[in-house]
Nucleic acid binder design. Structure first.
Length: 268
DNA sequence: AGTATAACCTGTCTGC
DNA sequence: TGCAGACAGGTTATAC
């Protein structure tokens, strides 16, 4: 469920709520979520960062808790210790609040890390970081891979998932199966801009709730109402029926007219 | 090198 | 109503 916008929405909501609070106790409810909890108990949260789809909770005495929400992970801040469905971890804070990690499909992951190395090594350029420049993106757009595969690969640009990949490619008017090496300079620039625009708009709308995504207090996002092609039947721009095709092993939606395949298209 | 598939999981929806 | 199969925002390992 959570792609960069959803994780960023959580980060922005959690940061002011958690900063300065101490982790009193951690209760692991699912062995799959186990980590050395002694490493975080008693420590104070100094900030909440995001890298790609990871949430990072910085701790005062060094190190941080890294959380990946997988497909169905949720983070809820509750005043009372009311058991939630699929609760995997309960973090009791010095304020008496509980930060609950719930995850139906159990694909989420938690780890305590000392340095940023492990994560930044396997993650590429974050679209919201200052390093996200046309120059840097252009350097990644080489090889014969298809655009869809590139966008889903967290080692190139990180944070984009299956929904936003389709939305970004529609915005950039690029066919998902176009090869990176076939892109003109103008097309590379369109892709660069589309990534930023779509993700930022989704953040403004507080993320996309199709099924599982919930904000810190349980509210839904709003961007699902603004999706252009994902799960849609007709192109909002020209009315042509939207094509659904499995690309990179995932459902991919595009407008065959606005996003022409390689060879056709581009009228400069 | 690039792509596909399965695996890890649980839940929901569709069609017979 | 029951049941099989497809599908779902994630990553990773393995195979062709």
């Amino acid at each position: 469920m959570p792609e960069l916008p959803e994780v960023e929405v959580l980060r922005r909501e959690l940061e002011p709520l958690l900063r300065g609070k101490r982790i009193v106790r951690v209760e692991i409810r699912d062995p799959r979520c186990s980590f050395p909890k002694e490493a975080v108990e008693g420590k104070t949260v100094t900030g909440v960062r995001r890298l790609g789809k990871y949430l990072l909770f910085d701790l005062a005495e060094g190190g941080y808790l890294a959380l990946h929400l997988g497909m169905t992970g949720k983070l809820l801040l509750a005043k009372e210790n009311v058991p939630q469905k699929h609760e995997r971890m309960d973090i009791l804070l010095s304020s008496g609040e509980h930060l609950l990690f719930c995850d139906t499909r159990r694909l989420g992951k938690i780890a305590f890390l000392q340095e940023g190395k492990e994560l930044s090594e396997k993650l590429g350029l974050d679209p919201l970081s200052p390093a996200y420049t046309l120059e840097n993106v252009r350097a990644l757009l080489e090889g014969r891979r298809r655009l869809k595969d590139f966008l889903l690969d967290q080692r190139g640009i990180c944070g984009i998932g299956n929904i936003y990949a389709s939305e970004i490619l529609f915005r950039a008017r690029l066919h998902p199966e176009r090869a990176l090496s076939s892109l003109s300079e103008a097309e590379k620039a369109r892709l660069f801009v589309a990534v930023r625009e779509v993700l930022e708009e989704a953040i403004e709308e507080r993320g996309t709730t199709i099924r599982d995504f919930r904000r810190t207090l349980g509210e839904e996002g709003n961007f699902q109402h603004l999706l252009a092609v994902y799960g849609k039947s007709h192109c909002p721009s020209c009315g042509t029926p939207i094509v659904r095709k499995v690309i990179a092993s995932r459902s991919t939606y595009f407008c065959p007219r606005c996003q022409p395949p390689e060879g056709k298209g581009e009228t400069p």
